[in-house]
Each structure stands twice: as structure tokens, then as C-alpha cells.
């Protein structure tokens, strides 16, 4: 058995992938219900990394974005950790038009435009992160609460330095999917990073999830 398998087995990763698949599917359906957009999902990807490798991995994934906006939200429960949702620059303005058809024009005032962009991204983040994390918690028989989200708008990828690396040598499970907003030329990347401290519970919960079908 390799070191990584001691942390989480391949079977547990398979179960987690299916749980994520269901959770991300729920998130896209919730978002589509609120705004008139068809959300296309990529196959969820799960990586087992050292915590210290997470920033580099994420930065490589968002390398194509010249500017980015990111919404970060921590969640607590037996399942606890961080969710990060990345959008390329300008996404907030495009998404704003989807929320309010009567006022689809972005205001000319620069200040108001930034405020609306932030509010829109926060709303989208709230739906995608909330639906994904809550569905994972529900499937694994847990209940989570959320810390207030933080948002950074139109930054360079390398400027996101607040990674909260408490245990850089500790393991991290990185789960991510790409949400593409069909016909709108917008896509975002959602990462869920459970805390190492919730791994023990997570492993048990994943087996319990599968056991109900045996």
C-alpha cells in the first residue's frame, strides 16, 4: 500500500468522485433554475496532493485566465474545508446580464459596475458552493455551516496568496469541476478542499454512503 493509499484508498476516491458528481450536478441544476443559462459540467476531477502543492496546482489550472475573480468560502461541520470558485476577468459583467433582464446593461459608472460585478459573482458563488457542499454533506449524513465568503475581483492569478496553509506537508484532496455557461462564453472552476482534519470522518462517511446500497 502506498503512502497516498494510507491516507485515502482508491475505492474511497471512487466513492468521493461519485459523491462529487452528484453534488456538482445539483449545483448546476440549482443555478440553471435561478438564471436562464444552461450549465455544462466537466467530469469531476480528484487529486491527492501535499497541501503545499495546492496553490501551484490551482495556479496552473487557471493559467489561461489573464485576470481572475475568485470567491473563497470556508465551511464547517464534520465535513469542513474550503471552496474556491474562479472566474476569468469580465465574467461578473457577463453574468450580471443573466440575473436581471430588465437592467441587463452594465452601468456606466465605474464604481457601481464594480459593486454589481462583485454582487453577481458572490451570488453565483453562493449558489454553486452552497449547493455543492450542502449536497456532499447531505449525502454523507452531515450538516455544514458557512463562513462569510470573501471575494477578490479582477486580480492577477499570482496575487491570490491567502492559501491558509496550516500544514504544508499534510495531504490535501482537491476536487474540481469546470462549469461552462453554454452560449455565454463563460466558464468557472470550482475547487473543494476538505481539511485534513476531516479525513478520518470523510473515509468513514464514504463507506457508510456505499454500504446503504449493499
Amino acid at each position: 500500500m502506498s503512502n497516498s493509499e494510507m491516507i485515502i484508498s482508491n475505492e474511497e476516491l471512487d466513492i468521493l468522485q461519485e459523491v462529487m458528481n452528484i453534488a456538482f450536478g445539483k449545483a448546476s441544476a440549482d443555478l440553471a433554475e435561478i438564471i436562464d443559462v444552461y450549465v455544462v459540467l466537466s467530469v469531476p476531477d480528484i487529486k491527492l496532493l501535499k497541501t503545499a502543492e495546492v496553490p501551484g496546482y490551482i495556479e496552473a489550472e487557471i493559467n489561461d485566465f489573464e485576470n481572475i475573480s475568485v470567491i473563497k468560502q470556508n465551511f464547517t461541520g464534520k465535513f469542513h474545508g474550503s471552496a474556491l470558485l474562479f472566474f476569468p476577468g469580465g465574467a461578473g459583467k457577463k453574468l450580471f446580464s443573466l440575473f436581471d433582464c430588465d437592467r441587463a446593461e452594465v452601468p456606466e459608472s465605474e464604481d457601481l459596475s464594480v459593486v454589481l460585478e462583485k454582487d453577481t459573482l458572490l451570488e453565483v458563488g453562493n449558489i454553486l458552493i452552497g449547493a455543492s457542499v450542502s449536497k456532499v454533506a447531505e449525502l454523507l449524513n452531515d450538516e455544514v455551516s458557512y463562513r462569510p465568503p470573501r471575494i477578490m475581483v479582477e486580480r492577477k492569478a499570482g496575487e491570490i496568496v491567502d492559501w491558509d496553509l496550516v500544514e504544508p506537508e499534510g495531504p490535501a484532496i482537491l476536487m474540481h469541476t469546470v462549469f461552462s455557461f453554454d452560449e455565454r462564453d463563460i466558464s468557472g472552476l470550482l475547487f473543494l478542499i476538505p481539511s485534513y482534519k476531516s479525513f478520518e470522518w470523510l473515509k468513514k462517511a464514504l463507506h457508510a454512503f456505499l454500504k446503504q446500497y449493499e
Binding site: 453534488a23 448546476s28 441544476a29 433554475e33 459540467l41
Partner: peptide, 9 residues
């Protein structure tokens, strides 16, 4: 069989 239950899907 899907978790993606958007009306458009």
C-alpha cells in the same frame, strides 16, 4: 441517470 436535472438537460 444523472445528477444534472436542469430542465434543458
Amino acid at each position: 441517470c444523472t445528477a444534472d436535472v436542469q430542465m434543458k438537460t
